[in-house]
Amino acid sequence: MIELEDVWKVFGADERAILREARRDAPDEAVLKRLRAVVGVAGASLSVGKGELVCLMGLSGSGKSTLVRLVNRLLEPSAGRVRIDGGDILSLGPKALRELRSRRIGMVFQSHALVAHLSVRDNVALPLEIRGVARTKREDRADELLARVGLDGLGDRRVGALSGGMQQRVGLARALAADPDILLMDEPFSALDPLIRHDLQTQFMALSRELGKTTVFVTHDVDEAFRIADRVVLMRAGRIVQTGTAEALASRPADDYVRRFVRNARLPACDAQPSARVRAFA
């Protein structure tokens, strides 16, 4: 479904020079510093199957938020290939790219992503408005989705009047409005307090299971990753360190970094194992 092949993302004035240096076996830190380089993602390869929920996990600055932005080209990869359903998305023109984003890929952000001057309903209906869906039709769809995420009857409110947890539900409803196959979630629950985060995780898992969306979920919280993911991808300094199920990471950590990361993690209880879902959609 989603395939990333040796993708790189470097930031700086001269991307090509930085990339040349960063790609060497032993990059010269002094050269990178002179180029004012920031290496976001360094040669990551990953494929996500249809209906699979993959968590990108790592500390701040490990490149996970950068990597997820390469999937819908919010950031242009410096090198590598990105394919969706076998189609190369890096060759898409601006119009085809907008089309891809509006129809096939929904995205949820950590914060500040809702439009403050619109009502909750209009926010959810925005992706449909963009596509020219008639007002009554898109409002019906928005109300249906609001009910789905547990916000029945709140469509007329202003988004600013909602709590953080409610705003994230609105964000999720908006990402689902265009009925995309792919969901990209960039730390959607990280800014919420633990109880609400847990509720939203539970609700999201149920919804995700029901809808069977292919999902890339970014988080720095190992408990969250282990709880909801079919597969966990652990990143450090732009590189993918280990990929596997929660049990695999916990029982066979690839190195000390992984071991330290998963040491205190709670493994999900058996009834919450999401892997059954993968088989159902495989």
Partner: peptide
């Protein structure tokens, strides 16, 4: 916030 334009871009605007 810059996240606003980013989210709009992600919506295909």
């Amino acid at each position: 916030p810059p996240g606003q334009s980013e989210a709009a871009t992600a919506l295909g605007l």
